[in-house]
Computed example of a mutant assay.
Amino acid sequence: MRNVVAYLLVSLDGVAEAPDQFVLDFDEVMYANLGRVIETQDAVLLGRRSYDEWAPFWPTSSHEPFASFINAVDKYVVTSTPLEHDWASTTVVDGSVEDFVRDLKQQPGGDIGVHGSLALTSSLLAAQLVDRLRLVVAPVSVGEGRRFWDGPGDARRWELERVVGTPTGSLLADYRAEPSS
C-alpha cells in the first residue's frame, strides 16, 4: 500500500501559512532533505488554493529540485469548481476526497505527497489518511496564522523516524503514524 506523505514548512509555534515569510534561510541540508522526500513520490495531492498559486508559477520556475518534480508528477487537485490554469499532468478529484485517497493508496506506485495545502492536509489528518509527516521546523515563532493541524484532530501517536538539525537552525523531523487502536 502507498503512503500519504505530508511535507510542511512550519514555525516553532506551528504556523504553516505563508512559510515564505518565515523560512528565509533554505540551506543545503534542507535542499537535500526536499530531494529525499520527493524522490519517493509519483503523485501529489493539492488543494485549490495551492493549485491556483502554484500553476502560474512552477511551470516557468528554475527552483530545483522542486520545479522539475512538481511539473512532471501526477497532480490531483481537490476542488468543486473548474480550474482556471492549465498545468501538465493535472486531474481534478471528483467526489469524496477520502474515498479517492483510499483508492489511490491501494493502486501501485510510490508515495503520494501533500505539499502545502493546509486545509487538505488537515482534512486528511482528521480522516487518518496521512501516513508520514515530513516537517521542516524553522527557528522562529510567528505568533499568528493558520496551522496545519487546525480543526478536528487525528488522535493517534506518531513515531519519530528521523531528526536532523540544519546549519541555519531548522529542524527536519520525520514522523510515521502508528496504527490506530
Results as ranks from 00 to 15, higher is better:
48 R>Q: 06
8 L>N: 07
29 V>K: 13
125 L>A: 05
62 S>E: 15
131 D>N: 08
112 I>P: 06
166 T>M: 07
84 E>L: 11
32 A>K: 14
97 V>P: 13
169 G>L: 10
25 D>C: 11
79 T>I: 02
108 P>M: 00
103 D>A: 14
96 S>D: 13
152 P>K: 10
149 W>F: 13
13 D>K: 06
19 P>H: 11
81 T>M: 09
60 T>I: 11
74 D>K: 14
104 L>M: 13
144 E>H: 12
154 D>W: 07
8 L>H: 06
176 R>K: 13
176 R>G: 08
52 D>H: 11
178 E>M: 15
4 V>D: 00
62 S>V: 14
45 L>E: 08
25 D>T: 11
102 R>L: 13
165 G>W: 06
153 G>N: 04
156 R>V: 03
73 V>N: 02
14 G>H: 08
26 F>P: 07
170 S>Y: 08
172 L>A: 05
113 G>D: 02
140 V>G: 05
76 Y>V: 04
111 D>T: 11
150 D>N: 09
16 A>D: 05
76 Y>F: 12
69 F>L: 07
156 R>K: 00
118 L>R: 07
95 G>I: 10
132 R>A: 13
115 H>M: 15
21 Q>P: 12
17 E>L: 07
177 A>K: 09
78 V>M: 04
94 D>F: 00
28 E>A: 14
158 W>K: 03
103 D>R: 15
129 L>C: 03
120 L>D: 08
121 T>A: 13
176 R>P: 08
84 E>H: 11
167 P>R: 12
45 L>N: 06
140 V>S: 01
95 G>W: 02
181 S>L: 12
10 V>C: 14
112 I>W: 00
176 R>Q: 06
80 S>Y: 08
102 R>T: 12
84 E>Q: 15
109 G>V: 02
88 A>H: 08
180 S>R: 13
42 D>T: 01
62 S>D: 15
63 H>S: 15
13 D>Y: 04
